[in-house]
Amino acid sequence: MAGKVKIVKGSGGFGGPLTLGIEGKKDKVMYVTGGHRPEIVDRICELTGATAVDGFETSVPEDEIMAAVIDCGGTLRCGIYPKKGIPTINIMSTGQSGPLRQYITEDIYVSNVGVNQVSPVDESDISTNRTDEADREAETVYTKDKKIMETRSEQENKSLLTKIGLGAGKVINTFYQASRDAVQTMLHTVIPFMGFVALLIGMIQGSGVGDAFANIMSPLAGNVWGLMIIGFICSLPFLSPLLGPGGVIGQVLGSLIGVEIGQGNIPPNLALPALFAINTQNAADFIPVGLGLAEAETETIEVGVPSVLYSRFLNGVPRVFVAWLASFGLYE
């Protein structure tokens, strides 16, 4: 029973192959997939003898998790478990994306995995990849793996000129690194979404569906009662975790309402309550993960998930209404 499995990426997927098996306390496969249980969870458990745990209902101490199975489209979850050093299997095809993309690497993450990508391995095939770092080289003044600036900054007695140079260098570097990060975010996160939404809007406008769509959308999003109905639906506790992932539903709804505002079918001041109406399900799918980041205990997560779902429901419609009150005088 207690064998190992090899997991490769599916077509269009990223990362892997991962070799997993029970190691000491690490004997649980946690799946955080908003309600359903992917087939691969059962397959992995069958081959390795691990236990399956629904991460949405309960939590597992991190040192007992053998692997995490997720269905993240590329915002948060796909980076969180790799960041914690937990091997992560994504059933979606997401590659390195989202704000934590730098943690998503081939040795800890594999995506677009189905049952066919999971196969047993013979013990004899496995060799440990991890070798210790080679011994440090003897200390010298300048080493080949450090720039002169780095060597200087480690010296204890710095002259004033060195200090000024290092200080200026640090500030410039901070700006430059900030810029690199920002461009990465734009390229990998914002612009792809823009392309997707622009295509969607173009199809709706160019095909003539736009007019039909305006007929449905304007009465619903064109007055406060309709917006409150949207907010009510999105906040229903059994629906909100399904609408949450990646904020995709909210973002598409937002873009569609934006088009109608741009064409004058919806008054511009209703943009404010609309922002609240399309997002009453905000982060409902993310509760266990967020509480995990807050190092919450298992009990807290079990109480916290229903608690936040209920509070989202109680808050949802009033938020839309208050936003509508606050929209008086906007764009008049």
Binding site: G246, I257, I261
Partner: peptide
């Protein structure tokens, strides 16, 4: 910068406002 991955919740609606020249 807070949440660029989900910026379009705001930006989707705001781009309509921009289109009106507001």
């Amino acid at each position: 910068h807070i949440n660029p991955a989900e910026l379009f919740i705001y930006l989707g609606i705001a781009s309509g406002i921009q289109q009106l020249g507001l």
